[in-house]
Design a protein around this nucleic acid. Structure first.
Length: 877
RNA sequence: GGGCGCAUAGCUCAGCGGUAGAGCACUACGUUGACAUCGUAGUGGCCGUAGGUUCGAUCCCUGCUGCGCCCACCA
């Protein structure tokens, strides 16, 4: 017997997932979910919980349906994040950044990874995520290393990967290049300084506005627009850079916008993307005045040497002011690029980096999505994908850190590059190239962008470049579930690299899930302090409750607003089901006989319930196939709570609690009782199976409790019972009960007070059900049916039946009259609408015939009811 | 500047070319056996706005307004 209190904590920890998760039905259709590998430094947040829960629901559903399911887990080494984290921990122990050698630092990071990395994997188990953990992969494991190098060499040999000197976004804190995607623009308040540049051999000045005065030492020109008459005569002349007195030309370039600033703009090619382009157009030199830490360095006055860029700014401004070269200062707010990992303000910087020719890889990727070989769900996210792919820039894949895949490129004495899968191969190439054996090669110091290996995840995990059975079965047929924010970072790269490496798309579906916000709709963040910990929610409400709640909120195209209490949705629902099962146990409805056949069921209430379950199975299955997990949750909820608990269980209580078994007085009653028991236990078994994908802990607990050995997905097609008559009759009985309850409440009749009632109906089948339902009517509506009423009565109209409620005491006739009159008003208005429509020739001609018919029927029903109520009102005294 | 999404009950959200729904909240009543993590009944909506298409629009189309997001630019 289930415990009286629903306490998920008491059983959720009992179930392990490893066994069932690694089960493979190898002869069946494949279904694979590619788990986005969480960072090795990560811990579970609500976003993960949503993402993983949805995946797990799909996976468990497909397992029940008999698919060959692979749910492949893994962890990402997360280069920059992890190295920063370990360096910080070392710093706290007194180890300065940069004081360790490469091998020493790597060893420290590996040690950290072994001891503290991947806690999120354990947290996933708490949530009941049924990955095949025996196949857990790491983006730096041997297989990944091999695959990464293999693809690098292939890309290089195909000319799609190259080393070049370009301007990139540089993070002065990490001291590495980062990709454009890792740049976040932030609005900051700043100042704009108007500097006076003296014309050479003149006393005149040209005024230039800048937000970066400290970069003036790197200026190589002043640009003005050729159509700007203010400066037309200055083009070709020279100005002197303030504080440096170095002459630079005034050039004409359309980049200079007469509307902005003073219309004259300083050109600093080494420290600005636009200026770099202008410099290139005009063959200007590149003067770098910042080092890797963004300190001033180079051909600049001694007093500014080694100053941090922000201190340098102050110093430069002060000096300019002292020399009278500062015309004015204005306060502005503008957007400035920051690194999303370090939070440091970025610097454009010209360095040697490795790049992937993403534009070329993008062509087949765009084609694949355009041709629907890959479908985004919801579809509109394709737009975002296309938009980015259209404007894709070369992808800078080298990072100046140590934790990651070291770039498999070696340099000979003359900087000649040898790209190879390992040092030995590189050496062989070098020997062949130089024609001598004593060649010394130095490997590139940089590592690859973390997203490089992530981009290979779909095939790394299937043991590419080997030709595994899993690869041929699952590759290009899997689904990826992720947030929209990594469509660029990850999805696009997986598609590009997957097609390039294997010739085929890695997956055929991309499900984009919602963003989970706090209850006010704000993004959750540590700094706001509004982060909800899913593990805490599991502890308070249970993992199943959290899973159910997340599923029920997962409507497409809308973010999820969620507070802690939101999880009560799931907790309350599961409690309800728990108690329903308890009720069944108490009434010997827990075990469904093996030979039970739902299609032989006779009792109207039983048939009604069977039909409700059949409908639910069909609905849930449709919703599952359409990735509508909110609908899945809702269909189950309605069937369990509204149909099964609210009506069915109340209806069957008189039958289950009758004494017929003991007395054996009636075989018919006893066999009805048995049938009801069987249907009840069958219904519960269906609920458990349907619920398993969403609430696996509870489902398994109930299976154990009820002795259910095998779970499978119910097949609605095997339910062939024709239950239309029963459904109609039971629905009618429900209407009567609701109407009587409503009227009793309106008249203020105490719930405990029993009333006599006479039910009039011309429908014989229904008449019979009413006669058989005395006890139900008594329990649920508080009425006992009689043939003749002695007391005063008030009639209630329910469809084609009239229920006369008898009262001994006084009833407020006036208020009842009022109520009926207002009901009548509504009915009349309703009828007017229908009549108007039926009088409309266009409607009759153009509307679908069944719609017209339905309106006619509606009109008949309304008329019938109006007549009956009219009659009642006239006779109320 | 370019693009995307959203707007339905007090709140959170479903829905749909043909009578507007749920959960929460609220009001009233109700606990000696499935369940107060509950039950019963109720209150509450010109479905953002202006046009158009249609026999009929909350739903389809267009404009507008408001909110959110993405990309680009910013001397």
């Amino acid at each position: 017997m289930l415990e009286k209190n629903f306490n998920p904590k008491s059983f959720e920890k009992d179930f392990s997932f490893t066994l069932e998760a690694s089960y493979r039905n190898e002869n069946a259709e494949p279904f694979m979910v590619l788990l986005p590998p969480p960072n090795v430094t990560g811990s579970l947040h609500v976003g993960h919980a949503l993402c993983y829960t949805l995946q797990d629901i799909m996976v468990r559903y497909k397992r029940l349906k008999g698919y060959d399911v692979l749910f492949q887990p893994g962890v990402d080494h997360a280069g920059i994040v992890t190295q920063l984290l370990v360096e910080k921990q070392l710093y706290e122990k007194g180890v300065e950044k940069g004081s360790l050698k490469r091998e020493e630092l790597l060893q420290e990071i590996w040690l950290w990874k072994e001891s503290s990395g991947g806690t999120i994997i354990e947290q996933m188990k708490v949530l009941g995520i049924s990955c095949d953990f025996s196949r857990l992969r790491f983006t730096l494991d041997d297989g990944s290393q091999k695959a990464v190098r293999r693809l690098f060499v292939k890309l290089y040999n195909d000319g799609l990967l190259y080393r070049g000197e370009r301007m990139v976004n540089w993070d002065p804190l990490i001291r590495s290049a980062i990709s454009d995607l890792e740049v976040v623009e932030k609005e900051v308040s700043a100042k704009i300084w108007y500097l006076k540049y003296k014309l050479e051999n003149s006393d005149e000045f040209i005024c230039v506005a800048t937000t970066r005065p400290e970069t003036l030492f790197g200026d190589v020109a002043i640009a003005v627009n050729s159509r700007d008459h203010r400066y037309a005569d200055l083009i070709g002349k020279k100005v002197l850079i303030p504080l440096l007195n170095k002459p630079v030309p005034i050039i004409a370039d359309d980049y200079a916008d007469p509307e902005k600033g003073t219309g004259a703009v300083k050109i600093t090619p080494a420290h600005d993307f636009n200026d770099f382009e202008v410099g290139k157009r005009h063959g200007l030199p590149v003067v770098n005045i910042l080092n890797e830490r963004a300190e001033l360095k180079g051909e600049i006055p001694e007093q500014f040497q080694n100053l941090d860029r922000f201190k340098a700014r102050e110093a430069v401004v002060a000096q300019l002011e002292a020399e009278g070269l500062l015309e004015k200062v204005e306060a502005i707010t503008h957007k400035v690029p920051f690194g999303d990992r370090s939070g440091a303000m970025l610097e454009p910087r010209i360095t040697h980096q490795w790049f992937i020719d993403a534009a070329k890889l993008a062509i087949p990727a765009v084609k694949a999505v355009a041709e629907n070989k890959i479908a985004f769900i919801p579809k509109h996210w394709e737009n975002l994908f296309f938009e980015w792919m259209k404007n894709i820039e070369p992808w800078c894949i080298s990072r100046q850190i140590w934790w990651g895949h070291r770039i498999p490129a070696w340099y000979g004495p003359d900087e000649k590059i040898f790209v190879a899968e390992n040092a030995e191969e590189a050496l062989q190439k070098a020997i062949a190239f130089y024609g001598k054996t004593d060649v010394e090669l130095i490997q590139d110091n940089d590592v690859l962008d973390t997203w490089y290996s992530s981009g290979m995840w779909p095939f790394i995990t299937l043991d590419w470049p080997g030709n595994s059975a899993e690869f041929s079965k699952f590759y290009s047929h899997m689904i990826v579930v992720t947030g929209f924010d990594i469509i660029f970072f990850w999805i696009a790269r997986m598609i590009m690299m997957g097609i390039y490496a294997t010739g085929d798309v890695p997956f055929d579906k991309v499900y984009i899930h919602a963003l989970v916000r706090d209850e006010k709709g704000q993004k959750m963040s540590k700094s706001r302090g509004n982060v909800i910990d899913p593990l805490e929610l599991c502890d308070t409400y249970g993992a199943d409750a959290l899973r159910y709640t997340l599923a029920s909120l997962a409507s497409p195209g809308r973010d999820i607003k969620m507070g802690k209490q939101t999880v009560e949705i799931g907790r309350n629902f599961l409690t309800k089901l728990w108690n329903a099962v308890r009720f069944a146990q108490m009434n010997n409805c827990a075990h469904c006989p093996r030979d039970f056949d739902v299609n032989t069921v006779k009792h109207p209430m039983a048939q009604w319930m069977v039909q409700k379950i059949k409908d639910m199975v069909v609905d849930v299955e449709n919703s599952m196939e359409n990735y509508r997990f909110d609908e899945v949750a809702r269909h189950i909820y309605q069937c369990v709570w509204n149909s099964f608990c609210d009506w069915y269980m109340e209806f069957i209580k008189p039958i289950l609690q009758s004494e017929s078994e003991i007395t054996g007085s009636s075989d018919a009653v006893a066999s009805t009782k048995k049938e009801i028991r069987d249907v009840t236990s069958w219904a519960i078994a269906q609920f458990i199976q349907i619920l398993y994908p969403i609430a696996p802990f509870m489902a398994q607990k109930l299976c154990r409790e009820l002795g259910i050995l095998n779970l499978s997905w119910p097949n609605a097609d095997t339910i062939t019972l024709d239950s239309r008559d029963s459904v109609e009759k039971i629905d009618r009985l429900q209407s009567i009960i609701s109407a009587v309850r409503s009227l009793r409440k309106f008249l203020g009749i105490a719930p405990a007070e029993k009333l006599e009632a006479k039910i009039e109906t011309a429908n014989n089948a229904f008449r019979q059900l009413c006669d058989e339902s005395n006890e139900i009517l008594l329990r649920m509506a508080g009425i006992s049916a009689v043939q003749k009423l002695d007391s005063h009565s008030i009639p209630v109209v329910v469809e084609d039946a009239v229920v006369h409620l008898g009262f001994e005491g006084k009833i407020d006739i006036q208020s009842e009259k009022k109520r009926l009159t207002s009901e009548m008003e509504k009915l009349l208005k309703n009828r007017d609408d229908v009549v108007n429509r039926l009088n409309n020739k266009d409607f009759l001609q153009k509307a679908a015939p069944d719609i017209v018919q339905e309106h006619q029927k509606r009109l008949d029903n309304l008329n019938d009811k109006i007549n009956k109520i009219n009659h009642i009102i006239r006779n109320l005294v």
